[in-house]
């Protein structure tokens, strides 16, 4: 029972956390990346399509990452080089992603509806030898897919990049006071463009983590996860561990909604609102806590 709940939580958390780690980097560089949703969506389609047609999961994930990074590069180019409003470019990314995925699915697969790839390779659960057989603990720690395990590793790697390497140090300085960074010869442009690319990289994995386990793609299947990831970024206050905590809460909220669907008569549609309401509630709670005296 607890094992099931934890598994659902992790399964729900993984795509959000990947994307949120991506959003964390742009956030540290001083920008809110609204395009996470779109990047995830494009990768969800391209990774599954590639994996199903080549039979290679790795190739699928790589193509997913590349497509998401391409979108991120466009976002970086338009907002940094052409100096467009980064919010609007983010919205454009989302709109473009929702258009292009349906466009491609209609032109490549002949349908705009649900795409199910029967013979796509399985993103199988990994049984950890040794731990697997320990009662309870085995149930809790074993049997997740590779992207679930890797995301925890990614949190640690992000932590090191952000707090221990020059890149992370420079990126944080740009986000806190870009004038100060420029005065010591740091290129704001390079830092921010880089953060977009990293953001695309992680959001790409997030998208793959959404479609590959269920071998299914539906238009708009990200369904607000990019936005929830964005909230996780804000709540995480620039720290990957904070982002992890926030993502776990959202995963648990979704798992709870699933649990109710299975055990109660409440309409599934209404239960689908739970993650959003929980996110909103936490967002409000967070704001109340750090409420400022004046509205500016």
């Amino acid at each position: 029972m607890i094992g099931d709940f934890l598994h659902t939580t992790i399964a729900m958390m993984t795509p959000i956390l990947w994307a949120a780690l991506g959003g964390l980097f742009t956030q540290l560089g001083g920008m809110l990346n609204i395009g996470l949703e779109g990047m995830m969506l494009v990768s969800a389609f391209s990774s599954l399509y590639t994996a199903a047609n080549t039979g290679s999961l790795l190739l699928g994930i790589l193509v997913g990452i590349s497509s998401s990074m391409l979108l991120a590069a466009i976002m970086g180019y338009v907002s940094l080089n052409l100096k467009a409003n980064v919010f609007v470019v983010g919205l454009a990314t989302n709109l473009f992603a929702s258009g292009i995925t349906v466009f491609l699915s209609s032109n490549l697969c002949g349908t705009k509806g649900t795409l199910y790839f029967q013979n796509a390779p399985e993103l199988s659960e990994i049984k950890i030898p040794g731990i697997e057989n320990i009662p309870i603990l085995g149930d809790l720690l074993s049997g997740y897919d590779i992207l679930d395990y890797l995301v925890f590793l990614a949190v640690i790697i992000c932590f090191i990049i952000i707090f221990k390497t020059p890149y992370g140090f420079h990126l944080r300085s740009v986000g806190k006071n870009y004038r100060a960074s420029v005065s010591v010869g740091i290129s704001v442009y390079k830092q921010r463009f880089g953060s977009f690319l990293i953001s695309g990289f992680f959001a790409g994995i997030g998208g793959a983590a959404l479609s590959l386990p269920i071998k299914t793609f539906v238009g708009g299947m990200t369904n607000g996860r990019g936005w929830i990831a964005l909230v996780a970024v804000i709540l995480g206050r620039g720290n990957p561990v904070g982002v992890l905590m926030a993502s776990i809460i959202f995963g648990a909220a979704s798992a709870l909604s699933n649990l109710f669907q299975a055990t109660t008569d409440i309409s599934p549609k209404l239960l689908l609102t739970v993650p959003f309401l929980v996110t909103l509630a936490i967002m409000i709670f967070y704001s109340v806590k750090r409420k400022k005296v004046n509205a500016q």
């Binding site: 090191i160 390497t165 020059p166 010591v184």
Partner: peptide
């Protein structure tokens, strides 16, 4: 900032 000393692992 901008001229950090790094160890051999780039940290």
């Amino acid at each position: 900032l901008g001229i950090e000393k790094k160890n051999k692992y780039g940290m």
